[in-house]
Every structure is written in structure tokens, then in C-alpha cells.
Design a protein around this nucleic acid. Sequence first.
DNA 1: GTGAAAGCGCTAACAC
DNA 2: GTGTTAGCGCTTTCAC
Lengths: 335, 335
Amino acid sequence: MSVVTIKDLAKRLGLSAATVSRALRDSYEISTETKQMVAKLAEELGYIPNPYASSLRRRKSKTIAVVLPEVADSFFSLAINGIESVAKDKGYHVLIYLTHESFEREKAILHQFKSGRVDGILISVSEETSSGGHIKEVIAAGIPVVFFDRICEDVETAKIITDDFESSYKATRHLTAQGCKRIAYLSISPALSISIKRTEGYQQGLADSNIPATESEIILCENDFEANYQMIKDLLKKKNRPDGIIASVEKLTPPVYLVCRDLNLSIPGDIKLISFTNLQSALILDPPLTTITQPAFDMGKSAAVILFKGIEKKNFDLLKQRVTISSELIKRVSA
Amino acid sequence: MSVVTIKDLAKRLGLSAATVSRALRDSYEISTETKQMVAKLAEELGYIPNPYASSLRRRKSKTIAVVLPEVADSFFSLAINGIESVAKDKGYHVLIYLTHESFEREKAILHQFKSGRVDGILISVSEETSSGGHIKEVIAAGIPVVFFDRICEDVETAKIITDDFESSYKATRHLTAQGCKRIAYLSISPALSISIKRTEGYQQGLADSNIPATESEIILCENDFEANYQMIKDLLKKKNRPDGIIASVEKLTPPVYLVCRDLNLSIPGDIKLISFTNLQSALILDPPLTTITQPAFDMGKSAAVILFKGIEKKNFDLLKQRVTISSELIKRVSA
DNA sequence: GTGAAAGCGCTAACAC
DNA sequence: GTGTTAGCGCTTTCAC
């Protein structure tokens, strides 16, 4: 706790608190000499402003919230870096909240933001989030919100996404071009915006490759490794097993590799695989993994930049913003 | 911004602000009926306390800071989850700061904590941090600090670490037991506590295996992928190249695999490899990677638990706390 | 069991 | 260019 306050500085300098405050904020009203005196003493005494007194008075916190499902995923780790890089430059602080894919938790977290704790919010919604009422409430309370990656289509505010449909489409077409006739799609929560888009891209890819819908298979995976392993194993044990797989999120890659190993199936010989992932280690997997790699850092950065515009510029129409940053299909050995 | 204040509630109920405040905080002085009335109206009007007014008055922020070098590493991602899990239960908020391995940045971040922005700090120091003066200052200002993973030995406060010496020793002994005669150790910043311990464990392991110091080789790696790749390539091109490698941090794994592939060297045939990493994908690498896996989640959790004890319990001697949680050597194919 | 009053540290209006 | 005053919204004496 810094025990030195503006009053202390004022007393020592024979000035009023108001003048010191103005000098510290470099107000145009204050003479250069005074500013220097104040700055010098503040430095000497190790004065650090109390952020909460300032927040209370000015009604802004210089803080943003980042609401994420998890941080285990490499996508979100990279996104945090992008966000932090711009928050730091802006002199903002970053509060982090994890929903653990729970809608209830997400609601509770957002609810308390109406208190003015943060000046803006970056959010990637949970798997369970199918409607955005809780987010609309926060926006109605006057707090700018920017979605990134996992959005709510029914909430009108800025959205930073990647081209999920196109990525999935490209992945599917790549597999069929390699000769796949029967492609399984490993999905997560079907309510998620990214799931919907990716699934659509997959289906369109199949259609455009003249693969009948009967030859498609969508497996709804869970958060539990063992359960996913088992589902994938069941899938690959069937007599008409797929010859191609698209793993729609990072965490579904390991179980596929393991099942193939355990079932003695060769990738890409028996089964070709493409995963959505940002893991650097994709290229040292056995075999090197063909990936859809998302612009995670840039998405985080871009979301933060837009959020700050929304916070700082009064006549910036945050609500209409929509940025799509392309993902990349990186061909390696698995497909 | 919640526009409903305690005064509003008080006015509506014909009570004083003081009574409402006490009722909301469930003070023993207040009658049950009053409490219920207040709770009911607060709920109805959507009252949310202004956290900064409360922080200003009570001189506590219900917020902790987590200061990390990066969040790209799987270790720190998992640690954040551990930290968040306990902060959530305690009703605390988590501010995150990245130093990007810069000492200057770390100093600046810590400096402003003297303002009372946070009630406690969890920190894993940067590569460049060789002395802890900036941390001592914060502690002197009365703010509890807990180190986790990367510590400053010269700062007397709680430290949560893993058994770096033993892990490295075990890794080295495992390699020599497999027949390695010449083991290289890929290091990062030699000033870092974890680097020092791991290097010592490596050297002791060599000594106990009767391998002369002349057959050891410590390569100081950097933050740049290309540079590391080149250094490792140079290392493995030498005629007396090592037959074993210990990668002391996660990010050094990919370049080793790539160099081996490019030089047509077989792992583990020509070179055995053990890496410090928490990546789930270790077991689907080519070949599956033998790892030292750290208890990242538990370290984060444990650090947070101890920090909160330091914050909440006055007669808890935070400074003397020291917890070591063991890492695990997981034998797979690479060594 | 409740109220009045003071004040946390800072800043914005309004003076001069 | 600087000072005075009045709060921001909450909590905490100290009364009764």
C-alpha cells in the first residue's frame, strides 16, 4: 500500500491537491515549473496513484476482462498474448475469467461486470451458450463487448472470427481430392458458432465432391479424453470405417492418433486426418499433421484493438464491426 | 455501469445507507427481516456493488496478480487454470501480466502494485531476473508474494517449486543407463533458478555415471526458433556428436526433432532425447517422447492456496513456506 | 437494531 | 495558473 497520497505531495509543496492532481495528469492549465516540481517530488517519495480512488471518481477502470472457456488450448494461449500486447500499450489491465464451458458460470461472470469493474469485455463463449441474453444485458449497461472466435450471432456487437466455413470446406475438399470416400467429422458442442460453420463447410465440401450424405458421419465428442478415445475407436472398428477424419478442435487430435496406433491403422495409409490446431508440435507428430491453423494471436490482437476503439472513441460504431481473419490449411503428411 | 446504489436501496426502503450496507454484508447487528427486505429489493433492482468504492474504503481489492513470462508454454497455461480454480472459489479476481522475459517490464509491472491494486501476487520470474530487489520492495509495502516455478532465491517469501535437480538427475541417469556416453544439455537463461537446478542435476547425473565433464556439453539456447535450430544442427553435425540430449524446456523439443529429421538421424537409434514438457501431444510425436512432466496445475493451485492464506490469515508465516511438488519421468520411446 | 457523519484518495466544477 | 468545494459509492466508527 503506497502511503503517499496526493495530499502529502500537496502539503510538502505548498500546493492544493487539485493542482498536484492536474500536474500529474499533465494538464495544460499547469505551468511547466510546477509540473516538474510535482514530478520530482512524486518520484522521490515514490508516489503511486491509488487506482481505485481514480476509478471511483472518473467512472472508468482502465481494465478489461477476457472471458474464455479454458486456457489449456493453444488457441486461447496465443490469443491472450495478442490481447495483452495491445492492452499493455494502452496502459490497460487485463482480468481473466474462465467459464470451463459452463453457461451458468459465464452468466455469473458477466453479471458482475455491470458493476463497472471493467471498461470493456472480450469474450469467446462457452460450449453451452446458445443465447446471448446475458451479454446483451452487459451491453445495455453501456459496456463494450467484442466477441472473438466463438460468437453469439444473436448479439449485435463486434465480432472477430476466422473463416470457419471455408477452412472446413477446404479441409474436406482436400481429403476428397486425396481419394477419401467416407469422411468422419469430429465435432464438439453443436450449438457453438464455430461448430455450426465448420460443420456446414464440411457438408458443403462433401456435396461439392459428390459424396452422398449417407457417407458422412458426425461424431459429437465430449470434454473427456477417455470417452472420446472410445468413441473414435468404435468409429474406426466398424467395417465401413471412414478413410478420412476432420478433427474440429485441437484436443481431438491425440485420441485419433492413439486409436490408429492401437488399432494398427496407418495415417495417412488407412486414414487421412486433418485437425484444427495451433500446436507447434504438429510438424513433429507421427506422421506430421496436416492442420487448419488459426490466426490466434492476430485474432486476439484485432479484438483488443477494436475493443479499445469502442471504449475510447465515442463515435465509433462498435456494434457493426465484423472482422474475418483467414485460417491456413497447412499440408503435411497426415493428409 | 450499475446505476443502482446503496443509497437508492436505502431510500426505497426508508432505511439508512449504513443499514443497507450492513444488511448486504450479512452483519450480525441487522435483523433477519431487514436483511431479507434488503436482499429482495437488491435482487429486484439488480443492485451490484461498486467494487472500487468498496476497495477504496476497505483498502483491499479482492484481486490478485499473476505475473508470467509468457503464456505460450503449456506449463503456464495449466498453471493459470490451477490458479483460477482457487481464486474463483475465494471470490477473487485475477489480473494477468506478461513480462515477455524482460526484467525491465517485470520491474515496471511490480512497481505499480505498490498502489494497492492487488492484495497479493503470484510470480514466475523472467529469464533476465537475477536479483529480486523489485520484489522485495513490493513485499516491504505489505503485499504478499508467492513464487512458483521460477523463483528468486534471494527473496524471502513463499516458493512453490518442482524438484528440478532430481528431475534432471533422473533424466541424465536414465540416458546413461540406456548407454549414452555423451549427453548434451539444452539450456536457457543460466540465471534462472530452474536452469541452475536442472543443470546441476544433469552434472551430478553425469558424475554419478562416471562420465567425465569433458563429455558434457551445455548449449545455451535462445528465444528464437531459427537460432536454436541452427545451434542444434551444428551440435549434431559434429563428428563427436552427442548420443543423448536433454531439452530443459518445452520449446526446445521441436527443433531437436526437426534437426534429426533433416540430418537423417534416428531417435532413439542415433540420439536419445528427454524433454521437460507438459504437452499432451508428447505421446503422439514421432517417436513418442520421453518427458519430464511437471505438476503445472497443482503448482498453480498450491501457490494460490498459500497466497490466500497469506492474504487472509494474519498469523500465517508466508515467508517461510516452501513446497516442492515432484515432476514425473515418463518413459516412452525417444529414450 | 438502526442512523448520522466522516472519509478512503482522487478529480471535476467552479471560482478567482 | 491555482485553490476551494463537493462528491464518486461504500464502510465504519460512534452514537442512541
